[in-house]
């Protein structure tokens, strides 16, 4: 093993610093006493913004809505994405390639196009904007994430495993539950978490598909325009970091274990 040259080490450290120092500033300005601008260094430190956040109903409504939308969109994506992957992973039929392309398109398409398209479609069909229009908007790209993860894992799954299960007397449902699901479980977990994270901080599609509701990202955006109580946004941002970091850590440990078991025979 060769040692990395000093210049490379410095470049790596600089890269990491560039990624993480802004996060530290978010943390720092949670405690500042100056509420109108982010002056450096902060003139004083206080914990009062945590109390302010605790008392503001609009924040909790936004957090609640974001969690609700992300949960429903992820659930929808898990069911539909897995079904689509199951159909397209192995079967050969006319139009298979165009269909899989159409599945992946929403994530390649700029969110602004998806947003406008959905807004116009909802308008034409006279569907009023609600939580459900936001969920549908998010599901378009959440499905892709789950589908991509599931289809990759399904293609690695030996087709004879499914045949062996049927051969031993299991019907399609038992085979799915006892053989397919355990073997693609970690892929679904990874896909589901990514879908949840994408939905949780989505701004563009949400802007076009939401009515009066504001999800957490939309709330933050509107808060930045207001000149007062700026550190409140920082406190919320830190809470979001904490809340998203824990499941990612958990998923990392879960899938690491799963890979070791499922992959060691390969």
């Amino acid at each position: 093993m060769t040692r990395a040259p000093l210049s490379l080490k410095i470049a790596a450290l600089a890269g990491l610093a560039f990624l993480h120092i802004p996060l530290l500033f978010i943390l720092l300005y949670c405690f500042t006493t100056e509420e109108k601008s982010y002056a450096f260094p902060p003139p004083g430190f206080t914990l009062k913004w945590f109390g302010v956040v605790w008392g503001r109903a609009d924040i909790w409504a936004a957090v609640g809505l974001s969690l609700k939308v992300a949960s429903i969109a992820t659930l929808l994506a898990l069911v539909l994405g897995t079904l689509a992957a199951g159909a397209l992973a192995r079967a050969r039929f006319f139009g298979r390639e165009p269909i899989s392309l159409l599945f992946v398109l929403p994530i390649a398409l700029p969110g602004i196009v998806t947003g406008i398209a959905l807004r116009q479609a909802f308008g034409l069909m006279e569907i009023p904007f609600s939580v459900w229009t936001i969920v549908l908007g998010h599901a378009t790209f959440c499905i892709v994430v789950v589908y991509n993860n599931a289809v990759a894992r399904l293609r690695r799954l030996s087709p004879s495993l499914i045949e062996a299960s049927m051969d031993l007397g299991a019907d399609a449902f038992q085979t799915f539950r006892l053989v397919v699901l355990p073997n693609i479980g970690t892929a679904l977990l990874a896909g589901g978490m990514l879908a949840f994270a994408l939905s949780f901080d989505e701004v563009i599609v949400t802007t076009f598909t939401a009515g009066q509701q504001s999800t957490l990202p939309i709330w933050m955006l509107s808060e930045l325009i207001r000149p007062r109580q700026r550190p409140v946004t920082n406190v919320v941002a830190v809470l979001v970091i904490l809340v998203t970091f824990l499941p990612i850590l958990a998923a990392y440990y879960l899938t690491r274990h799963g890979e070791a078991v499922a992959g060691s025979g390969k």
């Binding site: 004879s160 045949e163 062996a164 053989v179 073997n183 499922a262």
Partner: peptide
């Protein structure tokens, strides 16, 4: 032929 044992 490939035994098709369930890895999990």
């Amino acid at each position: 032929q490939d035994y098709a044992l369930f890895p999990h």
